[in-house]
Design a protein around this nucleic acid. Sequence first.
DNA 1: TATGCGTAGT
Length: 705
Amino acid sequence: MTNRNTVTWNSMISALAKNNKINDARSLFDEMPLRNLVSWNTMIAGYLHNDQVGEALKLFEVMPQRDPFTWTLVITCYTRSREIEKARRVFDGLPQEKRKPACWNAMIAGYLKKGMIEEARRLFDEMPVKDLVSWNSMLACYTQNEEMNMGLKFFVEMGERDVVSWNLMLHGLVQINDMDGALCFFRRIPNPNVVSWVTILSGYAKVGRIVEARGLFDRMPERNVVSWNAMIASYIRNNQVDEAARLFMEMPDRNPASWTAMVNGYVRCGKLDKARELLDQMPYKNVSAQTAMIYGYVQNMRMDEAREIFDGIGSRDVLCWNTMLAGYSQSDRMDEAIQLFKQMNTMNLVTWNTMITGFAQKGQMNEALEILEKMGERNIVSWNSIISGFTQNGLYINALEHFLLMARDGKKPVQSTFASGLSCCANLAALRVGIQIHHLTVKSGYVNDLYVGNALITMYSKCGRISSADQVFNDLDGIDIISWNSLIFGYALNGYGREAIELFQEMEEKGLDPDQVTFVGVLSACSHAGLIDQGLGLFKSMTVEPVAEHYACIVDLLGRAGRLKEAYQLMLGMPDKCNHPGTWGALLGACRVHRNIELGKLAAEKLFELEPRSTSNYVLLSNIQAEAGRWKEVERVRVLMKERGVEKQPGCSWLEAKNGVHSFFSHNSKESNMADICDVLRVLTAHMKNTRYMLDINLFLLDYE
DNA sequence: TATGCGTAGT
């Protein structure tokens, strides 16, 4: 059947496939006059080489006969698509005599990719005939899973070693950043080849030792395109894109990886137009380079250009889809994200998580939950996205519920989970739950994480346990500006103005530069504690550019002292015309306390303009007018509210007692013992009548109605 | 003369 001619066709197909010209290879395969078994195997191997597992399997289905080569190829197909069980079924179905060592080796390699070292070892021990590739495959299981102690033991036990064995060990040492060990090893390799050199070179680049990497590159006895690519990638890794570009121009020949590395390099340093220029010049564009370009556009909010590249890609992989999807999801364009999502036929965990994050950011938590339900396997990122989504949308109880559901799903919280959970407790003033989560962070070893520590400071502060906040602050191994700011805010919130200022001074003495947030904290501390002069002094001596929030603090501070005119004057002098609701809100609040109707009206009108749907502004103005007995004006505000479709939200508060959180709404409270509670309230109200709270009782009654 | 599987590097 086979003639000389068929062999020639076969070798041409193989050569084309190995040079990534898979479509040309297929054309030849279809055209050839006489195919033998080797032709089919060659074509399947070609598809595997080009990462087209689906096409490979299609050919396998229709081929007329099979041999051990074929079976090895099929096992590799399944291990590449991470379907290890299918691979194993094929393997188990083979009769003993057809199980060549390569077949076993392919199976071991499959377990390696899944990190299933024990399974691999069992198979390795069962093998009747082991060749050097078998030993190397097993060694790779150890070195690629950072099991270097086992790896070294195995390496020593190996009767025979080749340069692949040495290179595997070398790569393992590089992966755990043990460059001293790696260099030692490299020096002892009997005949290091270009792979050995590239491995050690990349290792130095990985730990930032770019000069040593370049030294190795210059000393390499032979260089191929991968060596050049590795050096280019090293420069890009270390933010030296110009040096990389120089090498790119110099190199004798380039492959798609060279181009992709450079496109990626320009994208990483923000030179998008350079990246695009290169991409357009690429002789054979590949999906990796195009995806890098899409990523660049997406990160810079240039979605139209990203889409243009995306639409021009013939065969997209899952990374490409996910990059485009993340672009829409991050720029709040969920409708387009959904469209894309529906068109995808291969997805992975990242795909689903991207959708969750997108919905969560838009506040569409029901949609986010729907995705969580539908996805099969979830990871910690899926749960974190849901929990932080609820947190950021103010749905703290739901967030904490899902904290528990996550545990039921068998996933352990990490830093960001704890940060979200603690933030919920802070906002709910749920001290007991907060303390429980604190214990969990200790148990799981995250208590010294800076994010967690800072969240703990805020949690204790907002729950009124300033001493605990202080203790967390002092116990943290390393603190940053956010830790300082959190504690300053904590003191401010709890009325310890002087302590907040002291902390601020301590921070300055330690040589730390306060930022804008620090000043908001310390100014609000002055305001809450009535430290007028200190506050004004600090404001004048601020080392950062004042922003609206600082003005709001000062307006609040002056307002509380009754210095309304001064506050208003300050606002007029703000750099850009004051459009900050918080500042006007502070003024309006002060006008109510000090009964300044004219200024209050002015502030309110401005606020209606800035946030027409905010209930509290209407209520405040209405209260001011009511206190002055100007009922017609009160009526006017109520009509205004109706016209604009603003509805007063029912008042709500909650507190935490032994057995959970109790919430109270001004209507239809869920509490069953409401009658008892009202009795107590009446007693307290009577008591308050004889105190300085008397002033506000009429307001209380007005709201109560 | 000449072809296909499994292990290492960008």
